[in-house]
Amino acid sequence: MDYLIMVIYAVTVMGVLLGGVTFAILAERKVIGAIQLRPGPNRHGPWGLFQTIADVMKLLMKEDVIPAKADKPIFVLAPVLAFAPAFSVMAVLVYSSSIGGADINIGVIYFLGVSSITMLGVLMGGWSSNNKYALLGSIRGVAQMVSYELPLILSIIGIIILVGSLNITDIVNYQAEMGMWFIVPQFLAFVVYMISSIAELNRSPFDLPEAESELVAGFFTEYSGFRFAFFMLAEYTYAIAIAALATTLFLGGWLGPAFLPGIVWFLLKVCAVMFIWFWLTATLPRARVDQLMNFGWKVLIPLALLNIVVTAVIKVWMG
């Protein structure tokens, strides 16, 4: 019976996630469109609602092209390996006080550990394509994701020190007891988290691995059809997961005034975080590799460390 519930839960999350990604892409295009003085997609269905569905249909019906000189097994495996960890982290997310995945006591560690595997997909995709742009893109991608993983994790440690637990439900409950979300006492950590998450997700202004004006399409230059769709799916799934983690850690998860159910608050906060990313995509130019690395190692990591020290001192002070 437990297994059945597990399967049902996983399939439901998968279904909701696919729908979520579909409309996240639409939302991104609409938001960017509005910022760029144009209507965005509006041909398919009312308000362009079916645009992404049409796009996915097109991608799925395309011929499956594998370059002749590509390293075939790795080439095929790469999109799957990019998507699998992004989806696996959903297992520990808790959406409201009653709806949630596995309630394990190392939830945050699991999330961070599994999500770092996504860079393997980038590396394998870029390497196996046997394309110079893809190779350069994947080198950039891996360097960037490794570098920004550190400030991302370090920024979370402050919260873990305060809560004294790695369990996601505990973290949210602690915020409820404290009477405020962690964004207030851990504001520095929130800023570091948001910046490094953009780099971690390869989103503009840190979209160097897929910089279209330099590297054509970066690590997935050679991908088309449903493999390309898979990469896009992985990207947006991961974005939703990171936004969900930000919501849980900094924005109080499902907490909110009682006139709406917890899960609605949760989803609204996820949308708000994602909106910030879309906003940045539409407004900022792309950073340069060396500047990006300098910024990560020389600014974000020291800031995250400072946050840990300050938090630890306060924690000891307060007892």
């Binding site: 910022i35 760029q36 503009s204 004006s213 407004t283 900022l284 130019p285």
Partner: peptide
């Protein structure tokens, strides 16, 4: 030029 640098929006403003 801004499109080259990686910012998409200015392009549409300029073309307006």
């Amino acid at each position: 030029y801004l499109l080259d640098i990686g910012a998409m929006s200015p392009f549409l403003y300029a073309f307006r």
